[in-house]
């Protein structure tokens, strides 16, 4: 797809998402869409480093979890406004990214070695968040107070009691705004010199260096942007569920979720997120009718799809659709 085509396609996707409340009134569907957009934000964060930069992180929970903990703890311990804490959450995630990125890229870790070290850092933070009980409340997790006063809904960044419209759609629009920011950032990145250099480093790091690209700085920039976007997902998660613990923050589930969407979906991460949640919800529905509440089957399917996509559709669902579209138009022209 051409550059312009992609921009138009992006716009075409966001317009209906913004208009969703006109059509969808069922809370369950909104929850589904929220979950999908959340995965898309997480995936877009991963995509900056993994998709554009070619550095496959297996520990993106690092940035999600750090942002979530900062967002929760500054409110919980110091009573700060969530609108203030979110900047610290983003900054904190970027600081962790700077540390991890500096060490990994300075010592030239590539490919699987980079994947392994991000995994190791995520596990280290997992242990730390469980162990320093005085700071993080340990395994019990941090539970924020639920605000029940509609007048305070905006001040507390909690929409649960904010009137009929906001209590249903408040968090939906929050995550939609976050996703738009993530997309705008990636769109901007693609247009800059930095974005071009990042792709050059992905394609051939040594050749890019030979042409004068400072690969270390470019990769560091990518991990910082990636962490900042992933931090948005952490902020949303804390405000929505008012709870964080070491397993949610730094466990392997979020790291895996972050790379699922972009790899299965291809560069169009929103597509991947819709695809996996569509399948996830459908299988849960089907299982619900036959066995009632039996976990596992949806993830079995994801695993199978992941393996199939890696083996036979390296450009993901978006790539498959693009190919089908090209074939259809070719036939129409002939």
């Amino acid at each position: 797809m051409s550059e312009r085509g992609r921009t138009i396609a992006g716009g075409l996707l966001f317009a209906p998402l913004a208009a969703v409340p006109l059509v969808v009134t069922s809370g369950r569907w909104i929850e589904f869409l929220e979950l999908t957009l959340f995965t898309a934000v997480l995936g877009q964060g991963w995509n900056v480093l993994g998709g554009y930069g070619g550095q496959y992180s297996f520990g993106h929970a690092l940035f999600f979890g750090t942002a979530a903990y900062i967002q929760a703890l500054l409110q919980f311990k110091l009573g700060w406004s969530p609108w203030l804490t979110m900047w610290f959450a983003i900054l904190g995630a970027m600081l962790v990214a700077a540390g991890v990125g500096y060490l990994s890229f300075r010592y030239g870790l590539r490919g699987s070695y980079f994947a392994l070290i991000t995994l190791a850092f995520a596990e280290a933070f997992h242990v730390l968040s469980r162990s320093f009980i005085g700071l993080t409340e340990g395994g019990r997790g941090v539970q924020l107070a639920l605000n029940q006063d509609p007048a305070q809904a905006f001040a507390t960044f909690q929409f649960n009691f904010a009137g009929p419209f906001l209590s249903t759609y408040g968090f939906y629009y929050t995550i939609l705004v976050f996703l738009s920011i993530a997309y705008a950032a990636v769109w901007w990145m693609q247009r800059t010199r930095f974005g071009a250099q990042l792709v050059a480093v992905r394609e051939n790091e040594d050749a890019a260096e030979a042409l004068g690209v400072d690969a270390f700085r470019v990769k560091l920039g990518a991990i910082l942007l990636s962490a900042a976007i992933t931090a948005l997902a952490g902020i949303y998660h804390v405000q929505k569920f008012l709870f964080i613990d070491p397993g949610i923050a730094y466990g392997p589930a979020k790291s895996v979720e972050a790379l699922f969407a972009p790899i299965i979906g291809g560069l169009g991460t929103v597509l991947g997120a819709f695809f996996i949640h569509g399948i996830g919800e459908t299988t849960k529905e089907i299982i619900g009718t036959f066995w009632q509440e039996r976990p596992g089957l949806d993830l079995i399917l994801f695993g199978v799809i992941l393996v199939l996509v890696l083996g036979f559709a390296p450009r993901g669902i978006a790539g498959l659709l693009g190919e089908a579209w090209r074939r259809a138009t070719d036939r129409a022209c002939n």
Binding site: Y56, G303, V304
Partner: peptide
């Protein structure tokens, strides 16, 4: 790293099949 992801996919399938 793609092969690493393939084995991750296999791990996810086996783990959740057990679950």
């Amino acid at each position: 790293e793609i092969i690493l992801l393939v084995t991750l996919g296999v791990a996810i399938v086996i783990e959740n099949a057990a679950l």
